[in-house]
């Protein structure tokens, strides 16, 4: 489903964000991406939804290779990938319903389908009662749940979460994690970047630890390997 083959990503001034990354993430898998700030977690996620392209090597996502994908094909690939961020990226002038619907509107989904699917996504994220609320009326956890609803409303095959619990309280963190686990249980592969060791230790999922752009650990967590 996701494969990195000898991927290097070098930014300006010869700064290597990722070095020789070889990685496979399978269908329906849940993987944590951990590492200190600047380790390359966000770059790795960006390579998956092709917001960046590798300096060398190849990233293959849902059958599309970074080596030969055309720029006009990227939007269609992104429709199969949901992305959530630490800073939520909600539109402040739209309520919850419209924020989630936005994701379908801009991909040309007919209005009657939009309504049905948005309400389903809001129900799944337990926000249907707040569908008319604006972002400023929501808590941090609720913000992130709206962002997740927006990411899953297109029923993606992959969900990427970049520090989704970084800006929310412990209670909200629990809710978001439960939600991501439920989404994963329905067959969506989830890759979640996090700083939180407590979160990683609590769930027995695969852990990919990055440090200075290199994979230092790739597998289930055992004592002493973090």
């Amino acid at each position: 489903m996701i494969e990195f083959r000898r991927v290097h990503k070098i930014y300006e001034k010869n700064w290597a964000a990722l070095k020789n990354i070889n990685l496979k993430i399978n269908k329906g898998e849940f993987a944590f991406l951990v590492g200190p700030t600047g380790a390359g977690k966000t770059t790795l996620l960006k390579l998956i939804f092709m917001d960046e392209s590798p300096t060398s090597g190849e990233v293959i996502v849902l059958g599309h290779s970074s080596a030969d994908i055309k720029s006009k094909e990227i939007p269609y690939l992104r429709r199969k990938i949901g992305v959530v961020f630490q800073d939520f990226k909600l539109l402040s002038d739209r309520n919850c319903f419209d924020n989630v619907a936005f994701s379908l509107e801009v991909t040309g989904t007919p209005g009657r389908i939009i309504k049905k699917r948005v309400l389903q996504a809001l129900t799944q994220t337990r926000l249907s009662h707040k569908r008319n609320c604006y972002p400023f009326q929501l808590s941090g956890g609720e913000h992130q749940r709206v962002a997740i609803a927006r990411a899953i409303v297109r029923e993606p095959s992959i969900l990427l979460a970049d520090e989704p619990t970084g800006n929310i309280d412990p209670e909200g963190t629990e809710e978001v994690l439960e939600l991501l686990r439920n989404i994963n249980a329905s067959g969506t592969a989830v890759v979640m970047a996090t700083h939180s060791l407590a979160t990683v230790e609590k769930y027995h999922y695969r852990v990919i630890r990055l440090d200075q752009g290199e994979i230092k650990h790739n597998g289930l967590l055992t004592e002493g390997n973090l």
């Binding site: 939804f49 917001d51 006009k72 939007p75 269609y76 690939l77 992104r78 429709r79 992305v83 990226k89 539109l91 936005f102 994701s103 801009v106 991909t107 927006r150 297109r154």
Partner: peptide
Amino acid sequence: IMKLVGAT
């Protein structure tokens, strides 16, 4: 966000 969710 449009770019993120796959708008052309």
